[in-house]
């Protein structure tokens, strides 16, 4: 068995900080940051936290699979609030979003990956 060469921590940091529009009051308060480890592989996402308090949520995505994957965060209504862009096999990426309480979906929007199982839900609490 050959080990899969996990992408170097050093090479792999693709930091996408997309901050959603927020009220002025929110902006003045420094929101709590919660990190969520997410593993992607064919064809599933494993999120190591299934909920987080409202504020900045950092999705740390590691692609353990053979194919490229991306992570798209959608509201329950299907509105897209952020995506990592394609994460190559063995690589990692971070997506930081300011999320309000509610239910979100994590999906891979490459090819038919979502239909094949790469979708899971994520809750943001008060």
């Amino acid at each position: 068995m050959v080990a899969r060469r996990t992408g170097s921590l050093l090479l792999a940091l693709l930091l996408l900080l997309a901050v959603l529009t927020a009220s002025a009051a929110d902006a003045r308060r420094r929101p709590p940051t919660t990190s969520v480890g997410v593993a992607a592989r064919e064809f599933r996402f494993s999120a190591y936290r299934t909920s987080a308090p409202g504020g900045i949520v950092r999705f740390n995505v590691a692609n353990f699979g053979e194919d490229g994957h991306d992570l798209v965060v959608e509201t329950a209504g299907g509105r897209r609030v952020g995506r990592t862009g394609e994460v190559r096999s063995g690589r990692r990426a971070t997506l930081a979003l300011r999320l309000r309480p509610g239910t979100y979906r994590l999906v891979c929007d490459l090819a038919d990956h979502a239909a094949r199982g790469m979708r899971t839900s994520f809750r943001v609490t008060r």
């Binding site: 921590l9 919660t34 990190s35 480890g37 190591y48 590691a62 990692r92």
Partner: peptide
């Protein structure tokens, strides 16, 4: 530390 969720 957040060993599950933070790389490294």
């Amino acid at each position: 530390l957040d060993p599950l969720n933070e790389w490294g």
